[in-house]
Design a protein around this nucleic acid. Structure first.
Lengths: 237, 237
DNA sequence: CCGTAATCTTACTCACCAGTAAATTTACTC
DNA sequence: GAGTAAATTTACTGGTGAGTAAGATTACGG
């Protein structure tokens, strides 16, 4: 059995085991046994338990990013690109549950190298989403200079929401990834455009005491009244 | 030194160690040493490593929920209650970083009892947020029956976004919890009201091919044109 | 059929760590 | 200050699991 194929087999099994047990409780012995080989093979090909986990991480991250980018490519408007990207994300998670578990929850608390790898993958996803957000708003009517920081904020919120919604999906098996995506877009798109365009949701005058009116803070409902430069977007130390 | 106080000391240290190392790599020996006592004390008072972790989990979850609820209480309108709750959440995370790490990232992959505990805490938070969402929309103009499922979806998205934004906060130390909260509300509130009120972001006619107009899907901007009962909200298996 | 370079295994070592037995000190009551 | 209950320690056991040494087996070109 040639090395490359064996490596993939090992990684296949390792992803399952790491997903089920978590990094530390997972034992290399178990992975080797389930892969139908003996332990030293794992060490020969993947160096160490950490090396094995890193290989899993790299392969699955690559797959996820590829799915994400592949979906967004060939879609013209940024708005629809974001839609396509989110859609691909949910579809990926639905189809590769183990990959996502490994990428997501198993990866903190570990050694330097691993956390670095995870952080990098996460940054890559964030950058991708932030790019989509920035582009999407750039096309909005009016000259709207979007600060990178703003787009980054929105990207974090979006990724976090999508992440958490994977749990929701698990409890709603009837929901297709497409429908989940649509709901999220529904929920977020308008508000996102508004905040990035400078509109603001009004916080209470002083916290704790209710403001003058119930829906007082809801932004102007027409496209016209947009605050050109509001105080909230100014720099702050 | 009386038992209750010792227990709290031990839990204090344990939260730090679990947050830094993660559950499995953390050793009871280290916790005992940092707490200035010997290992059998830990076992006498907290039963086992798992018992110790559960105690940490329970205490910190209680604190977080208390902060959340305490902030929302005494605030009249649901919209502002949600604001207050989110604000309290971010403030809590900013102030009790270790608590949040333990509650959040360290808690998967563990034994039955622990995952159950975490799931329960998470469900509690979700229910709280979903309640705020349902109330908040209930007050919206018009007769809007909000399905529990809808509110649950929004709650998941919100909690996930908030969760992820804790990372963003770490990289933006200048940002106050209040400001982060305001930004998130800014981003989400309008869209949330819209989707729950029945307005829809229009997905592309067929995925992949861009729709007729760029911002075509943006919901009507005035309060008037609201779809009374759109197909997307009908039941589906 | 010999050499050599893969592939693959058995059978260990060694360290770490959860959990415990047994004893010892402290504190407080009668 | 005898008695007892809580607080606390030293000094262990037993299991598990990462990593390895040394060798066995297969494949294949000369």
């Amino acid at each position: 059995m040639p090395r490359r194929i064996r490596e993939q087999q090992i990684i296949d099994v390792a992803v399952q085991v790491f997903a089920r047990r978590g990094y530390h409780p997972a034992s290399v012995d178990e992975i080797a046994e389930l892969a139908g080989i003996s332990k030293p093979m794992v060490y020969l090909y993947l160096d160490s338990k950490e090396g094995l986990f890193l290989a899993c991480l790299r392969r699955e991250a690559e797959r996820l990013v590829a799915a994400f980018q592949g979906a967004a490519r060939d879609v013209r408007t940024p708005e629809l690109r974001l839609w396509a990207g989110l859609s691909a994300f949910f579809a990926f998670v639905a189809e590769h549950r183990d990959s996502w578990v490994v990428l997501h929850r198993q990866a903190s608390q570990l050694s330097e190298a691993i956390t670095a790898e995870v952080a990098q993958a996460r940054r890559a996803v964030m950058a991708e989403v932030a790019g989509l957000v920035r582009d999407g708003i750039g096309e909005a009517p009016g000259p709207v200079p979007v600060a990178d920081e703003e787009a980054d904020f929105v990207a974090h919120a979006l990724v976090g929401a999508a992440d958490s919604l994977t749990d929701w999906m698990e409890r709603h098996p009837g929901e297709s990834p497409e429908r989940v995506t649509r709901r999220l877009m529904n929920m977020v798109w308008v508000g996102m455009r508004n905040v990035l365009a400078g509109e603001v949701w009004a916080p209470p005058a002083d916290s704790g005491v209710p403001g003058p009116a119930a829906s007082a803070g809801t932004p102007g409902t027409s496209g016209a009244p947009r605050a050109p430069a509001d105080p909230d977007r100014s720099v702050q130390g």
